[in-house]
Amino acid sequence: MKRKRIVCVALSLMLVLSLAGFTGCGKKSASNGELNIFTWTEYVPESVIEDFEKEYGIKVNWTTFSSNEDMLAKVKTESAGTYDIVQPSDYMVEQMIAQDMLMELDKDVITNIENIDSAFLDPSYDPGNKYSVPYQGGVAAIAVNTDKVSKEITSYDDLFSEDLKGSIVSLDDYRAVIGMTARSMGYSMNETDTDKLAKVEEKLLKLKDNVKVYDSDSPKNSLISGDCTVGYCWAAEIALAQEENPAIKIVFPKEGPYVFMDNWAVLKTAKNSENAMKFINYMLDSETSQKVSEEFPYLNPNAKAVEELGDEYKSNEAKNPPADVIASGEYVSNLDTDTLAIYDAMWTKLKK
Rank of each mutant, 00 (worst) to 15 (best):
V259R: 04
A10P: 00
T77M: 12
R183G: 04
E34F: 15
L15S: 15
P219V: 10
P88N: 06
V48C: 00
E78A: 09
L335K: 12
T39M: 03
W40Q: 01
S132D: 08
L72V: 12
T82S: 14
S273H: 14
I153P: 07
P246K: 09
P257G: 12
D262W: 03
K291C: 00
K304N: 09
Y313V: 01
N302C: 11
A323T: 08
Y258S: 13
S118N: 10
T269W: 05
G33M: 06
T194G: 01
L35G: 02
S12Y: 06
S89Q: 04
D209I: 08
N302G: 08
E202P: 01
Y135G: 05
I6A: 09
D338E: 15
P88A: 04
D126P: 12
K76Y: 11
I6L: 06
P297Q: 05
D227T: 14
E237T: 02
A345W: 06
P219T: 13
N275I: 06
D338Q: 11
F52G: 03
I37P: 00
D158H: 04
K151G: 03
P297N: 11
K151C: 03
D70N: 12
Y258H: 10
G226N: 11
M71K: 04
D117A: 11
G138C: 07
I6G: 06
K291Q: 14
N210K: 09
A323D: 13
T82L: 03
T337I: 10
S29G: 11
A80H: 01
N145Q: 01
